[in-house]
Nucleic acid binder design. Structure first.
Length: 558
RNA sequence: UGGCCUGUGGUGUAAUGGUAACACAAGUGGUUUUGGUCCAUUCGUUUGAGGUUCGAGUCCUUACAGGCCAGCCA
């Protein structure tokens, strides 16, 4: 067990107590996704928790697909989920399971419940069941079929399994308490008829167990010690325990609920994410704007940043919404350490050094990452004509503008000091050329006479630069809380229309060899990575992972 | 007008009956060959009321606020 230098969250405290009391020798958790969509950053929180516990206290975490609803589940999702968990850096070893592995056992237990007089076949329609269920404030009433004989129930349930009835004709229900203030205890449905092809059991079954009848027993079969789920299952805990207490299960797991992750400027509901995909608001589940693991991976987020984030936000039972800026902080923190610094100009304007020899070019040395002394240096071509960022020049500059202006001197990163002499504009008044002179004695970026400059600009050599498509991303939703929409309005209208802007940029030549998942810092601008889906050597595409903090932009807004 | 759960800076998380701490955000200074990084600094008596106690963010009562539940979804 590793040394715990940090206070324990409430679940870790429970685990610590269970280990200390001898109730358990190790912690066995499980991550139980339903393969009906892609995993998102909210799942990442759960994955870090469930896989983190055994890493910290000893034990293991099973991966278990909760595949009890064949109408919504697909192999594509199973595969993506496995890939995403691995990418985050977690390993389930041999412990991969499927709820469908337990369908036979579950069926036997359903029969046992019938024999014990604790469950019955229901003939009422779905709508009638709803009417009989009562409301939040009124008790339900018992079904006329509630007191069928055991023999009749057995016969009917067997015939349900044998496919003698159509979808929806009958269900199997537990016989608990129609007057319970907890709706989940008002004779919950255990099995429903679905003549559907299942991704794993194919056409073996036409009846499928409900979540409630599956989850706890699956946990018990796997000897899960702590079954961690989100808060909305809190009301299901009495039912979870009812099954464990009324069935001869091999172990008694404990369900513990925690609050799911909410993040500002995004949504975490699989239903909503699916709609964004289906209506092509985004470019698939792995669109770099999506909060899915696949999306943020393609965007260039790192597993380390996500894990540091998950660690910081903690685990509790309070409803809260985390500031997206906190996730961005951990991203920047990690990228700052790793990203190679390169130069690229996203909104170019030509800078011409009039006193630099026409056909001369020279190589200047650039450090790859000042945060990493082992990252080395590279050579960059410098010449008479360069591109710099349009917003690094201002014709009429305020005194706190450190960049280039007429008669002002700045440093070209890794190269020379240049001083602007004049500019050239076209008919519309747009600047087309910025003319400068350079000081040959400032090579590598420092003066010999002690002269200082306030500003340092990045640049690329016109002659040597390559073109690339650059995709600039912003929050997928324009408002902090996408759920906050006026009555009658559709949440999809809150999607940020500027969440993706594609531009053409000039990059330094070394970047044509960039590989996906390797982060770069385009100096003074943002972190980028090659897009794994669309980038090719001849047409490189870069995704903006996240901007650098920009104090100047902040000042300008005032 | 049922049941269950939760209330600590702007945001999120600690403090396990004994000096309210940390991170993010925001602001202000400093350093800097990235207006990045880094460093320093400012910002809350814990939802309200009552109670127990030498002592309460922590325990009790109550009010208020927020969340979840009436799928043959999970």
């Amino acid at each position: 067990m590793e040394i715990l230098d940090k206070s324990l969250n409430f679940i870790e405290q429970i685990v610590t107590e269970d280990l200390a009391s001898g109730k358990h020798q190790e912690v066995i958790s499980r991550f139980p996704p339903e393969p009906n969509g892609y995993l998102h950053i909210g799942h990442a929180k759960s994955i870090c928790l469930n896989f983190g516990l055994p890493q910290k206290f000893g034990g293991r975490c099973n991966l278990r697909f909760d595949d009890t609803n064949p109408e919504k589940e697909e192999m594509e999702y199973i595969n993506s989920i496995k890939e995403d968990i691995k990418w985050l850096g977690f390993d389930w070893g041999d412990h991969i399971y499927y709820a469908s592995d337990y369908f036979d056992q579950l069926y036997d237990w359903a029969v046992l419940l019938i024999k014990d007089g604790k469950s019955y076949v229901e003939d009422l329609t779905a709508e009638q069941i709803r009417e009989y269920r009562g409301t939040l404030t009124e008790p339900g009433k018992e079904s006329p079929y509630r007191n069928r004989t055991i023999e009749e129930n057995l016969d009917l349930f067997t015939r349900m399994k044998n496919g003698e009835f159509k979808d929806g004709d009958r269900v199997l229900r537990a016989k608990i308490d129609m007057a319970s203030p907890n709706l989940n205890m008002r004779d919950p449905v255990l099995y429903r008829i679905k003549h559907a092809h299942h991704p794993r059991t194919a056409n073996k079954w036409c009846i499928y167990p409900m979540y409630d009848f599956t989850h706890g027993q699956s946990d018990a079969l796997e000897h899960i010690t702590h079954s961690i789920c989100t808060l909305e299952f809190e009301d299901h805990r009495p039912l979870y325990e009812w099954f464990l207490n009324n069935l001869p299960v091999p172990s008694k797991p404990r369900q513990i609920e925690f609050a799911r992750l909410n993040l500002s400027y995004t949504v975490m509901s699989k239903r909503m994410l699916l709609r964004l995909v289906q209506e092509k608001v985004v470019d698939g589940w792995d669109d770099p704007r999506m909060p899915t693991i696949a999306g943020i991976r393609r965007r260039g987020y790192t597993p380390e940043a996500i894990k540091a984030f998950a660690d910081r936000i903690g685990v509790n039972r309070m409803f809260s919404t985390i500031d997206f800026a906190l996730l961005e902080h951990f991203l920047r923190d990690d990228l700052n350490k790793k990203a190679l610094r390169v130069m690229a100009v996203l909104d170019p304007v030509k800078l011409i050094i009039d006193n630099y020899p026409d056909n001369q070019e020279e190589m200047v040395e650039a450090d790859n990452n000042p945060e990493d002394e082992n990252s080395g240096t590279r050579q960059i071509a410098f010449s008479k004509e360069l591109y710099i960022e349009r917003n690094d020049f201002m014709e009429f500059a305020p005194k706190d503008f450190f960049r280039l202006s007429i008669d002002k001197e700045v440093r070209l990163k890794h190269a020379y000091f240049v001083k602007c002499t004049h500019i050239v504009k076209d008919d519309t008044g747009t600047i087309t050329e910025i003319h400068c002179t350079y000081d040959p004695n400032t090579r590598s970026g420092n003066s010999t006479d002690g002269r200082k400059v306030k500003g340092t600009l990045h640049w690329v050599s016109v002659k040597h630069a390559k073109e690339a498509e650059v995709r600039l991303y912003d929050h997928l939703f324009a408002q902090e809380n996408p759920y906050d929409v006026a009555e009658g309005k559709d949440w999809i209208e809150t999607v940020n229309p500027n969440s993706l802007v594609k531009i053409k940029a000039y990059i330094e030549p070394s970047l044509t060899e960039a590989k996906p998942s390797v982060p770069y810092q385009f100096l003074r601008n943002a972190y980028f990575c090659v897009d794994s889906k669309y980038s090719t050597p001849s047409n490189p595409v870069f995704n903006r992972i996240i901007t650098l903090k920009d104090t100047w932009a902040k000042l300008q807004k005032k």
